[in-house]
């Protein structure tokens, strides 16, 4: 499984690089717009990772199967990695386009909060003793961390944060020339997430004591 996702990822990265290199440079924003080929896939991967953590946390609590815990942990780690890349790449582009490094826009704020939630999740794991207790405590937190997302959106809108991100990716909001490399980069980001999650969960499995 890991080998196949690895091969798929390598192929996608190659294809993506070619597609982005041959796509036209954005007329208005210039070459800086190419950051979005990293920024947006990272956001998708981070959100998908955190969603996986929340779902696997709930499944772990119901089934008490260590495999769900390993995937929840791996997805949180890789999700935090992508979320960090997303938060770092965003301001570079924002400075060039919006003229400011940071804007308290709802999606930005929620992403930052999620980054804090899942960093706290990882800290909780490393500060708890006993693998089974770690799994239980972390699962409870991973679950609550996901519940807070819609509440946070509501909370931030209440304060009237200026929405700077486009609402949705509609088909015609992207020109046909960049739609394909864009879609390819998102698929690559998600594949990278899954590949790394599988590798990380497998590593954890190898470190775990053997089942008796």
């Amino acid at each position: 499984m890991i080998r196949w996702t690895g091969i798929l990822l390598a192929a996608l990265v190659t294809a993506c690089t070619v597609l982005i290199a041959t796509s036209p440079v954005d007329a208005r924003q210039g070459v800086i717009a190419n950051i979005l080929y990293v920024h947006v896939p990272c956001a998708f991967a981070a959100y998908a990772g955190f969603l996986t953590t929340a779902i696997c946390s709930a499944l772990y609590l119901v089934r008490r199967d260590e495999r769900f815990d390993r995937i929840a942990m791996a997805a949180a780690e890789v999700g935090v990695l992508f979320c960090t890349l997303n938060i770092l790449s965003g301001p570079i582009w924002a400075k060039g386009t919006w003229g400011q490094w940071w804007v308290w826009d709802p999606r930005l704020t929620v992403t930052l909060l999620l980054w804090f939630v899942y960093l706290a999740y990882l800290l909780l794991r490393s500060f708890t003793e006993g693998s089974e207790r770690t799994a239980r405590f972390a699962a409870v937190y991973g679950l609550l961390g996901a519940i807070v997302i819609p509440l946070n959106y509501f909370a931030i809108e209440l304060f009237g944060g200026a929405a700077m991100h486009p609402d949705n990716l509609e088909g015609d909001s992207l020109g046909p020339a960049i739609a394909l490399p864009f879609a390819a980069s998102v698929v690559t980001g998600l594949t990278a997430l899954w590949h790394l999650v599988l590798v990380r969960a497998d590593l954890e499995h190898r470190q775990a004591p053997p089942d008796l």
């Binding site: 939630v117 909780l124 500060f127 937190y141």
Partner: peptide, 27 residues
């Protein structure tokens, strides 16, 4: 109840709690 059974319990509670308190504080 979670933090009290972790290491660095005084640090752990605010770290866990504050991100979850955003909707409550803002409301």
């Amino acid at each position: 109840a979670v933090a009290v059974r972790t290491r660095f319990r005084e640090v752990m509670l605010p770290l866990l709690l504050l991100p979850l308190l955003v909707p409550i504080v803002s409301g």
